[in-house]
Amino acid sequence: EVTIKANLIFANGSTQTAEFKGTFEKATSEAYAYADTLKKDNGEYTVDVADKGYTLNIKFAG
């Protein structure tokens, strides 16, 4: 089991951190699915992958 950390960075400057656990593939998939649910209210997003994929910096356009 691994932990994927998602740093969520919103257009208004606020930030939030979420963690997803499971296999690497499952946790990564859940992180992207979570970002997709936030897209409606926060706009499109870009992802900067860090720490060999264990950290995702997800920035929303607003």
Rank of each mutant, 00 (worst) to 15 (best):
E1P: 06
E1V: 07
E1L: 06
V2A: 07
V2N: 06
V2Q: 07
V2M: 07
V2R: 05
V2F: 06
T3Y: 07
T3V: 12
T3D: 04
I4M: 03
I4C: 02
I4H: 00
I4A: 01
I4E: 00
K5A: 09
K5N: 13
K5S: 09
K5H: 13
K5E: 06
A6M: 12
A6H: 00
A6R: 00
A6S: 07
A6I: 15
A6Y: 01
A6D: 01
N7C: 05
N7Q: 09
N7A: 06
N7P: 01
N7M: 09
L8Y: 11
L8P: 00
I9D: 06
I9H: 12
I9N: 10
F10M: 11
F10A: 03
F10P: 01
F10I: 04
F10R: 03
F10D: 02
F10W: 11
F10T: 03
F10Q: 03
A11G: 11
A11Q: 15
A11P: 11
A11L: 10
A11N: 10
A11R: 10
N12T: 11
N12S: 12
N12H: 10
G13F: 07
G13W: 07
G13C: 06
G13S: 09
G13H: 11
G13Q: 09
G13V: 05
G13T: 08
G13M: 11
G13A: 06
S14Y: 12
S14D: 08
S14L: 11
S14G: 10
S14H: 13
S14E: 08
T15H: 13
T15V: 10
T15R: 11
T15K: 12
T15P: 07
Q16L: 13
Q16N: 09
T17V: 15
T17Y: 15
T17M: 12
T17Q: 10
T17R: 11
T17D: 08
A18T: 10
A18Y: 14
E19P: 04
E19R: 08
E19M: 10
E19F: 12
E19C: 05
F20W: 06
F20G: 00
F20A: 01
F20R: 01
F20E: 00
K21L: 14
K21W: 12
K21E: 10
K21Q: 13
K21M: 12
G22N: 05
G22S: 05
G22P: 01
G22L: 01
G22W: 01
T23S: 13
T23C: 05
T23M: 09
T23H: 09
F24I: 10
F24Q: 07
F24H: 08
F24D: 02
F24G: 03
F24Y: 12
E25K: 05
E25C: 06
E25Q: 06
E25Y: 05
E25H: 05
K26W: 14
K26S: 15
K26G: 15
K26E: 15
A27I: 03
A27L: 01
A27F: 00
T28S: 10
T28A: 07
T28Q: 10
E30W: 06
E30T: 13
E30A: 13
E30I: 07
E30P: 00
A31F: 03
A31T: 05
A31L: 08
A31N: 01
A31K: 00
Y32I: 14
Y32F: 14
Y32H: 08
Y32G: 02
A33K: 15
A33M: 13
A33R: 13
A33S: 11
A33N: 10
A33P: 00
Y34D: 01
Y34T: 04
Y34H: 09
Y34P: 00
Y34W: 08
A35V: 15
A35Q: 00
A35L: 13
A35N: 01
A35G: 02
D36W: 02
D36Q: 07
D36I: 04
D36V: 04
D36F: 03
D36C: 04
D36M: 05
T37P: 02
T37G: 11
T37S: 08
T37V: 12
T37C: 06
T37Y: 09
T37Q: 13
L38D: 01
L38Y: 13
L38K: 09
L38M: 13
L38H: 10
L38C: 05
K39A: 08
K39W: 05
K39G: 06
K40M: 12
K40R: 09
K40T: 13
K40G: 13
K40W: 08
K40D: 08
K40I: 12
D41L: 12
D41R: 10
D41T: 11
D41G: 10
N42M: 13
N42H: 15
N42V: 06
N42Y: 15
G43Q: 03
G43Y: 03
G43R: 02
E44Q: 10
E44F: 09
Y45A: 02
Y45R: 01
Y45W: 12
Y45S: 01
T46W: 06
T46Q: 07
V47Y: 04
V47N: 02
V47F: 05
V47G: 02
V47K: 02
V47H: 03
D48I: 14
D48C: 06
D48Q: 08
D48E: 15
D48M: 11
D48L: 11
D48V: 14
D48S: 12
D48G: 13
V49D: 04
A50I: 12
A50Q: 14
A50W: 10
A50H: 15
A50T: 07
A50K: 11
A50F: 10
A50G: 10
A50D: 09
A50P: 04
A50S: 14
D51R: 03
D51E: 11
D51Y: 03
D51P: 02
K52A: 15
G53M: 03
G53C: 03
G53F: 03
Y54C: 04
Y54E: 06
Y54I: 06
Y54F: 14
Y54P: 02
Y54A: 07
Y54S: 05
T55S: 08
T55W: 06
T55Y: 06
T55L: 13
T55K: 06
L56R: 01
L56I: 15
L56M: 08
L56H: 03
L56G: 00
N57V: 09
N57L: 12
N57F: 08
I58V: 10
I58G: 00
I58R: 00
I58D: 00
I58N: 00
K59Y: 08
K59H: 14
K59R: 14
K59L: 08
K59E: 08
F60Y: 14
F60E: 00
F60R: 00
F60D: 00
F60V: 01
A61E: 09
A61I: 08
A61S: 12
A61K: 15
A61V: 10
G62C: 07
G62R: 08
G62W: 07
G62D: 10
G62S: 12
